[in-house]
């Protein structure tokens, strides 16, 4: 049976409301997106929603106790909590620069955890 879903695109502040009709994995109709990225997003949402995870990691010897981090690419939504479990146990030593890789392939996923702020050494 064909299914229908309304999806709000999260890619940009336009937040397009996209209507998508599909049968299993096959897209029958898709409309409402202002740009092609929206269509791709909606298709991905049906198959396997992907999200960039942002969180923070404990820092030792820094001028702040946390460094904010993100996955360098979107990861499956259903794996987000697995990555959070890994992040909970992580410790990193100051200094940290923006873009520093904190950990490669968390929970066996094809992504890295990278720092999104700098942390200086605490003097």
């Amino acid at each position: 049976m064909t299914e229908e879903k309304d999806i709000s695109c999260i890619l940009c502040p336009n937040g397009c409301d996209i209507k998508i009709k599909y049968l299993d994995d096959e897209i029958i109709e898709i409309e409402g997106a202002l740009c092609p990225k929206g269509n791709d997003y909606a298709k991905q949402e049906i198959k396997n929603p992907m999200r960039t995870l942002t969180s923070s990691v404990m820092v030792e010897g820094g001028d702040t106790s946390l460094v904010s981090v993100k996955t360098d690419k979107p990861v499956p939504l259903e794996k987000v909590m697995d990555i959070m479990d890994v992040i909970d146990d992580l410790r990193v030593k100051a200094p940290v620069s923006v873009g520093d890789v904190i950990l490669d392939s968390p929970a066996g996923l094809d992504c890295s955890i990278v720092a999104t702020r700098e942390v200086k050494i605490n003097i």
């Binding site: 890619l11 940009c12 502040p13 960039t52 942002t54 969180s55 923070s56 904010s68 981090v69 993100k70 923006v98 999104t116 702020r117």
Partner: peptide, 19 residues
């Protein structure tokens, strides 16, 4: 604001607040 979604207009890419 450690979440992402900043900079789409200004830099044409998705950044976190600290970035």
């Amino acid at each position: 604001c450690i979440h992402d979604g900043f900079g789409l207009h200004k830099f044409k890419e998705v950044l976190t607040g600290p970035e």
